[in-house]
């Protein structure tokens, strides 16, 4: 029972990271139907911003987290402006391949600039482990879970309660019609990228602090897993992405807990296939009829 509880905690902290990343995928997909493969690398940039801001500007943790969100939001907008906006009216496959290109550019660009070695993240917060009913929870695990949940609620509020959120939802339903009623398309899309990238930046700093190891290729695997999470939850749906993230995190933990660690990725992708077969639109996805 203790082991079960401990594994639950492990799964939830892993899942909250995937969830934060999946949100970016799902929002961008929802609004311009683009799978932004560079998203995992923005998360890496967030981690590196955290590293440099804490080490060289002596930011405290919260300031580093907040500034990483701002910096990543700006990077996200810049990437959208230069890489995706010129391709807005071309085939979707073109934009998709560009996204992969941007991802390679960021990964190898950072390898070139800072070196490909893994480096240790500055420990801005002292690790305190709480013992409770035989379970071990560190303050950083609680912090990750708390921050992730807070950011997800904030995001939900922005989308559902603000004017910009309304514009985002309108654009995702029908971009042309949204423009007809006076919504600035470019601004809305930029805002979506900013929001998604800020989430990734926050995840980057949190991961850096939690695992204490960052490198330029750290975004690759989590990026793909988060994409799977977004698809499982129903790509385009914000609560779906959060749920998908937690499902993937718990699933991975469960597979390792029963001793099948070599197959943990295989199981995640297997579940993806099953979900796509049973619920092609994902758990929270809306089944939309193609207009003929």
């Amino acid at each position: 029972m203790q082991t079960f509880g401990q594994q639950l905690i492990n799964g939830l902290s892993l899942g909250s990271i995937y969830a934060l990343l999946a949100l970016g995928y799902t929002m961008v997909y929802g609004i311009i139907k683009l799978i932004n493969f560079a998203h995992g690398d923005i998360y890496m940039l967030g981690a590196f911003w955290g590293y440099y801001s804490i080490n060289y500007f002596h930011f405290n943790f919260w300031l580093a987290l907040f500034s990483a969100m701002v910096v990543c939001a700006i990077i996200g907008v810049v990437i959208e402006y230069f890489a995706y906006r010129p391709l807005r009216h071309s085939a979707r496959i073109t934009a998709l391949i560009t996204a992969i290109g941007v991802s390679f550019l960021l990964e190898n660009g950072m390898s070139y600039l800072v070196g490909a070695n893994a480096r240790s993240f500055p420990q801005a917060i002292r690790v305190v482990t709480y013992h409770w009913l035989g379970l071990r929870v560190s303050n950083i695990q609680l912090l990750i879970l708390g921050t992730a949940c807070a950011l997800m609620i904030l995001l939900e509020l922005i989308i559902k309660r603000t004017k910009m959120g309304k514009a985002m939802r309108a654009v995702s339903v029908d971009p042309e019609a949204a423009q007809l009623v006076g919504i600035n398309l470019n601004q809305t899309i930029s805002f979506t990228f900013a929001l998604g990238s800020a989430m990734a930046g926050a995840a980057g700093v949190l991961i850096g602090l939690y695992y204490n190891s960052i490198d330029p290729l750290m975004g690759m695997t989590p990026g793909i897993k988060a994409f799977v999470a977004a698809v499982i939850g129903g790509i385009g749906s914000v609560p779906g992405a959060s749920l998908g993230g937690f499902i993937i995190g718990l699933l991975e933990t469960a597979v390792q807990a029963v001793g099948l660690s070599a197959y943990k990725d295989a199981v995640v992708y297997f579940v993806l296939i099953v979900i796509l077969l049973v619920l092609p639109a994902g758990i929270f996805g809306k089944r939309t009829r193609e207009k003929v």
Binding site: N10, S13, T221, P222, Q256
Partner: peptide
């Protein structure tokens, strides 16, 4: 890989 908590807990 970055997370080994599950394996270690087991």
């Amino acid at each position: 890989d970055k997370d080994f908590n599950a394996v270690l807990t087991s």
